[in-house]
Amino acid sequence: MRLFLAQIAAFLPFATAVVVCLLVIWGELVPVKLRPNLLHPAQVYGYLDTRLKEADASPPVDVLFLGSSKAYRGFDPRIWAGRGFRAFNLGSTGQTPLQMEVLVQRYADRLKPRLVIIEVDASPFMDEGVEASLDFFANGPVDRPALEMAWRLGHLKTWNAVGFGLWLECTGRRNPRPEPPSMGTDTYVPGGFVEHESGPFEPPSNPPAITIRLRRAQVEAFHRTLRALDVADVPYVLVSAPVTDALYRSRRGQDELTTMLQGCGRYMAMQDPATYDDRTHFYDLGHLNQRGVERFNTALIDCLERRGWLPGTGLR
């Protein structure tokens, strides 16, 4: 029995070493299609690599945006600069509260925002957060907050991405070249925003119904993030960016989310079918086109100003 247990104890580190070696070989040599559990979407979409590198070199900002693609495609720092605010957008693809927590830990001190605007759509609260975690490990550092996020997720794909991300980081080969400023219909705008060049959009008349079910892990991460901002004495506003009326109407159970958000402090729901037309202001079901972005940002600044929730104007 003792020998058996000793052999098991010896086999486990041995197997771990072999698995790590094979992970690296697979990541380096095997095409993406043939390695379903090792996804490393480096510089593929969303400009997270460029955004994080810019954030690392950025001076302190007045306003910091967090959230999913609705954030980095919805909050345009150029419009905020026009109203006298230095803003930076730290949104990322599919960003859930678990990833938001990482960004707050990393950048609250560095960027010293005077206001954080958190985009609070239902989707990130319903999502496991795995896809967004892969984006983080492919385009960002493997540091303590990111490892904590991986631990909380406890997902095989995330841990494989951690392993391969560490390998690239140790060998100094993580995204050595900058991303091209334009990819397809997307153009990166300094300050973290991504502008989408779009044609006319015809919304489907009956998108499939979605029932909103909040994941406990995401709600907990969200509350931890807000607590961290409170501790750092950074004010925040929760903003529901507009989505198409078609998508909004297809969602069931929005009330639970709204009640939770209202209980979290300053909350603004910007959904307004009278202001935003599905065909004129969106390029898909969930994202505003540039015309919509301009209307939304202007309306948001006005609204925040009226409520006195904006930091003192004037660039620092």
Partner: peptide, 21 residues
């Protein structure tokens, strides 16, 4: 033994890489 264990560990790797999550 090292070769045999490597074979078993490789099978573990294949499971990790190709299993549904």
């Amino acid at each position: 033994r090292p070769l045999r264990w490597s074979a078993y560990a490789s099978l573990c790797f294949v499971i990790i890489m190709y299993m549904r999550t």
